Every structure is written in C-alpha cells, then in structure tokens.
Simulated assay, not measured.
Amino acid sequence: MITMYAIGLGEENKKEILKAYNKLKEEGIDVELIDNPKDLVDKLLSKELKGAVRGSLSSSKVIPYLREKIGKFYRASILKNPFTNNIFLLSPVGIDDISENKEERIKDKIKIIELSSKFLKSYNIVPKVALLSGGRLTDLGRNKIVDETIYEAEKILEYFKGKFNIIHKGILIEEYLKDDCNIIIGIDGISGNLIFRCLGLICKVPGYGAVILSDKNINFIDTSRNANWMRYYNAVKFLAGESFDLFKK
C-alpha cells in the first residue's frame, strides 16, 4: 500500500508533530509518521511516498543521507512577506548548503538564483531577486569582511545583468521585502538560517518549510525541529497541492 505523504518524527517536538498529523488526518490527507531518517528518504525516492517532510528528525542525519542519494542540492525557505502578504524564498538556509571557498560560493549562489527562479516561474510568479551583503553600500572600507560580501554580491549582480530583475542594496533586507522581492539571497547559510529563525521561529512569520532546489524533482520539504505544528501542517498541504493558498485564508 502506498502512503501519500510522511512526516519525520524525531525525539524532539513530538507534541507539535502529532498535532499536525492529527489535523491532516482529520482533513482526510493520507499521511504517516516515520522515525528513521533513512527510511523517510528511501521511501520517498522509491516512490512509496508522494512527498516527505523532515519534521523533527535531525538535519545532520537526514540531509547528508539525502545528498548521498541525489547529489548536490540547496534549500530555500518559503515565507510570507510581512509587508505584502506574498511569498518569498530565502536561501541559503542550511549551514552547509554553499561552499566556504569564495569562487565556489559565488557559483552556488548563481545556481540558487537559477533554480529559485525556475521554481517561482512554475507557479507563474515573476522572479525578483535581492542580494544581501554585510552592510550598506556606503559602508565600503569600514570592515574587510563586509567589503568582501559587497564585492561578491556585485559580481553576482554583474553576472545576471540583463537576464533577471535583480538588485543589490547591501544589508537592507527590510527594503527588499517592502519592494516585494521574492528571492532573497543571504550572505551564507549561517546568516540565512539566522534570518529564518528570527522571522519564522521568533516573529512567527508563516511558512511552508524549505523546498529542495535541485536539477532533480524531489518532493521533500525541510523543516526545523523547533517549529510549531502549523509549519509541518503547511508543508504537507503544500506537497498535497495547496500551493500558496494557505496564506490567502
């Protein structure tokens, strides 16, 4: 028997996982709980599942195993823009999603932009890309690390010149969101993860979890172990075809 969807059930946050599971079952959605990281991935890749959500399983156990099976991928959190009520993608959000090497990191960000744009276009959303760096553009010369992030963003901006609607205003994430940018590219996975935690877990900005950005079609949503039940529920509903309709209710 094929189960349509599954949520990973780890040792942490079981109450929130069970709340999401029960709500989904009440709505007639075929979902199961899986407590083994490899089983979750293997069942998804063998087509025993139509979609899977990491739930509260450990990222350090699920993500490396998924990479072992499908190769390189990135993650992009789907969040609701608090200024416009539209969705936006935030990436990278995994601490090991992009390279530590400068040149490879730029290539990773270029790939993230291309895959994120493809994802949005599949939902008939026109991509509008924003590049984050470590300070205002007028801060050049104050800090060597900040300077490097600005130069890096400018290189990516130049690469996409004339190809995408893409802007770089430095650290001003609030201005990007007010301008309704729907792809926010963080400095690295650490800062991206921190932005997600501040918005999603502290400020309670609604979201669907993080989609897998890959050349392969993988119906997997990455979620935080510290999320509330709505984030797990939203992730399964997204996989089940709700698209972004939950944000409109």
Rank of each mutant, 00 (worst) to 15 (best):
N193M: 10
F238T: 03
L45H: 04
S117Q: 06
K25M: 14
L140C: 05
N226I: 08
L213G: 08
R197A: 15
E158L: 10
I167D: 00
D96C: 08
K163L: 14
I95T: 05
L194V: 13
P206A: 15
P206Q: 14
K50R: 08
N217F: 07
F73S: 02
V126A: 13
G200M: 02
D39F: 08
G170V: 04
K249S: 13
I87M: 14
K109E: 13
F119H: 00
S243N: 12
V211P: 05
E32M: 10
G141E: 03
F160E: 05
K248M: 07
V211Y: 08
K118S: 12
V41N: 06
Y5C: 07
S58Q: 02
I106M: 05
R197W: 08
D35C: 13
D147S: 09
E152H: 07
K38N: 15
I63M: 13
K107I: 10
I183A: 03
L40R: 03
E100M: 09
S99G: 12
L66T: 01
K111V: 03
I221E: 10
G71K: 09
I212N: 02
A227V: 00
S58N: 02
L137Y: 11
D97R: 03
S214D: 00
K19L: 15
R67N: 03
K237V: 12
L194T: 06
D188S: 13
I221G: 06
F83H: 04
E48W: 07
I98V: 15
I150L: 09
L194E: 12
F88V: 10
P206G: 14
F164I: 14
K155Y: 06
S122H: 09
C198P: 01
G209T: 05
V93Q: 01
R225S: 15
L89T: 01
F73Y: 10
A130G: 10
E114K: 13
T149P: 02
F196S: 01
R75Q: 12
A153C: 08
T138K: 15
F73M: 11
F160I: 14
